[in-house]
Amino acid sequence: MKLANNFPSLIQDTVHTVAGVVIAGFALKSFLVPNQFLDGGVTGVSLLLHEMFHWNLAMLIILVNLPFIIIGSFLVNRKFALKTLACVVLLSLCLEFLPYPVVTSEKILVSMFGGLFLGIGIGLAMRGGCAIDGLEILALYTMRRSSFTISEIILGLNVIIFLLAAMHFGLERALFAMLTYFVASRTIHYVIEGLEEYTGVTIISGRSQEIKEALVLQTGRGITVYKGERGFLKDSFEISTDCDIVFTVVTRLEVRRLKNLVHSIDPNSFIFTHRIKEAAGGVLKRRASH
């Protein structure tokens, strides 16, 4: 029964992974490799070694990722490591045997669209529960032994890759590699999070009762109310009043509409937003589960 319940998710993960691998292979063989372009991360290391020593790229993809997959089996779990290994091997087979066409040799198009398709491929593979690029695993391993965040570690490692590229191939190639990596990383973010990424909105207003009613009755939002005080200005620090601090979660596409609604009630209301990495339960707008 449990296998039957998990079967749709298994099919979905498999489709995401296979599609991601094929698209990542397309980015490499149709854009980056024929034009001697580089990227960041473990993929960038593989491309760098391929360009410097002319070693087989398919084998490099496996060999360079293998240490990170082993680390991932300890940091995450063995299932994740095996899925990632299968994903990397499949990518290598695609690079070796699929007849990808060379699309363009225009540098800016290679950098932009190579990064775009590579980001789509890596993002889809991550939605399928595995990783094409093992740099994130290394960053997680390093983070547990230092005070740096994952983003800072990944940035630092990529700076080393780009410096090596600049020293060996020249500054222009390194700059294009940075552009490719930036496009790929932003695309990965959108593929994983979607355009409807959740955003937390906090509202402080003297007309909080009207705002609460509008959010719940007009937009159908779920809200949480904190009890607070407002005032404490420089010229009247001793003066404050009790207030309700309203918190709600909306999608990124709904933030502007919510702000307009709140400001129509109280133009002087204080609103601030922050990105939410993950949200579940409560009264949330439904979106596809990944």
Score class of each variant (00 low, 15 high):
D13F: 07
T180N: 02
D235Q: 13
N158Q: 07
V89I: 12
L233V: 15
T187C: 01
S240R: 12
K277D: 15
T149P: 02
L75C: 11
L49P: 00
N5H: 13
V76G: 01
P267T: 06
E96G: 12
A288M: 15
F7V: 09
T248L: 12
S208P: 03
P8F: 04
Q218K: 12
T187M: 04
Y181C: 09
L47F: 08
R145E: 11
I161E: 08
F80L: 00
G40C: 01
N65D: 08
P34G: 06
L85C: 06
M59V: 15
N77M: 00
G129N: 02
I120L: 07
E197D: 14
F247G: 11
Y181W: 12
F182D: 07
N35M: 09
V22R: 03
G119C: 07
F97H: 11
K107N: 15
A166D: 06
G200F: 11
S9I: 10
N77D: 02
I153Q: 04
F53D: 09
M1Y: 14
G222M: 05
G25M: 01
D39S: 14
A125P: 06
L109F: 15
I245S: 01
L164W: 10
I204V: 08
R186D: 09
G72C: 04
L66N: 04
S105H: 15
V76Y: 06
M52R: 08
G25T: 03
V42D: 03
T14A: 04
I192M: 01
L135P: 08
F37Y: 11
I160P: 01
G194I: 02
V110F: 06
L157D: 10
D133C: 05
T241M: 14
V262P: 00
S240Q: 13
K234S: 15
M52D: 11
F53M: 09
V22G: 01
I11G: 07
I70F: 08
P67G: 07
V45Q: 07
V159Y: 04
L124C: 02
